[in-house]
Simulated scan of single mutants.
Amino acid sequence: MSIAFSKYQGLGNDFILIDNRHSDIPVIEPAAAIIWCDRHFGIGGDGVIFVLPGQNGADYTMRIFNSDGSEPEMCGNGIRCMAKFIAALEGKVDTAVTYKIYTLAGIITPKVLLDGQVEVDMGEPRLLSAEIPTTLNASQEKVIGRSIEVDGKTWTVTCVSMGNPHCMTFVEDASSIPLETIGPKFEHHPAFPQRTNTEFVQVIRPDYVKMRVWERGAGITLACGTGACATVVAGVLTGKCDRLCTVELPGGGLQIEWSQADNRVYMTGPAELVFKGEAAAE
C-alpha cells in the first residue's frame, strides 16, 4: 500500500504532511516515520505531520512524529505548514483563512494571510517550573537566569513552555556553539524530566536576535517556531528583548510578538510546498 504525502518547509524546518482526515489514528507508526524522515533512504524531513479530524471544538487535530519517532506536543513551524496544507486540501489557496487546530499543547489558531505568510496565535507562555517541566526551581516558581551545569560548564538559562519545553541561554556568539555535542547533553539533562529543546541566543538589538536550536527529538534544525516564541519571552523576562522582535534562525527570520494586551504570543512566518508524492507504508 502506498500513501500520498506533501512535503512542506518553514524556514528550512521540513515536514511530511499526510491527509489523515478519515481516521483519528495516524496511518503510519512512529517506526515508519523514522524511515520516511531519513534523508538518505527515505523522503527526508524533521517530522511527519498528520491532519486528523478535529476535537474539542477544533477544525482539525495535529499529530506529529519527530524524526526519531518521538511525539512532541506541537510544532510552531509545523503548524504553519499544516495550515497551508489544509488550505490546499480545501481548495482555498490564495485565500485568507483561519483554522483552529487541536494539539497536545491545546488549541492553536493559525491564519493563512493573503501574502502567503502564516500568522499563528501560539497562546500564553507557561513560566512555572512545573509547567515546563524542570527541576531547576521550585514547582510554582519561574526559572529566570538560573544556573545549570552542562558538560563541565556553568550556563545561565531561562526556561519557558510554549506547550513544549524550552531552555534558553544568551551567548556572545551563537554561531560558535558546538550544537552537535552540547545539544544532546542539554536535551537529556536530569533537570528536564520530559527532555528539552535548547536555544542559544545572541542579542544583536532588542528588536533583533540570532538563535540556533537543538530540538528535542529532531536534533539540529534550521528553524524552530516554538523556540523562537520562547526566546522572545525569555528575552523580555531578562530585559534583553523587546516584545516585538525578529528572531533570525539559520533558515530565515520569524516575527514574534509577546502581546502585553492579552499575554499571548504571535508568530508570523512562511510555509511553502516543496513537492508531492507517494511512499510505501511499512
Rank of each mutant, 00 (worst) to 15 (best):
124 E>Y: 11
216 R>P: 13
123 G>W: 09
161 S>R: 13
46 D>R: 14
25 I>T: 15
47 G>S: 12
37 C>F: 04
229 C>F: 06
83 A>R: 03
110 P>C: 12
151 D>G: 01
171 V>S: 09
121 D>M: 12
225 G>A: 08
94 D>I: 14
182 I>R: 15
17 L>W: 08
112 V>T: 12
66 N>E: 03
29 E>D: 14
35 I>W: 06
258 W>F: 07
247 V>Q: 00
63 R>W: 06
35 I>F: 07
51 V>C: 15
76 G>I: 02
86 I>A: 10
105 A>K: 11
255 Q>A: 02
126 R>P: 06
9 Q>Y: 13
142 K>L: 03
160 V>Y: 07
78 G>D: 05
218 A>W: 09
206 P>K: 03
56 N>D: 13
176 S>N: 15
192 F>P: 10
191 A>F: 02
216 R>H: 14
152 G>H: 01
247 V>E: 00
106 G>I: 10
232 V>Y: 13
262 D>V: 09
70 S>C: 03
208 Y>I: 01
5 F>N: 06
117 Q>Y: 04
94 D>M: 14
13 N>C: 01
249 L>I: 00
229 C>Y: 04
30 P>I: 08
190 P>W: 04
46 D>T: 12
103 T>H: 11
257 E>R: 13
19 D>S: 14
202 Q>H: 05
82 M>H: 09
9 Q>R: 12
162 M>G: 14
79 I>R: 02
66 N>A: 05
171 V>K: 12
128 L>A: 01
262 D>M: 07
152 G>T: 00
183 G>H: 15
112 V>H: 09
237 L>D: 08
145 G>C: 04
53 P>T: 03
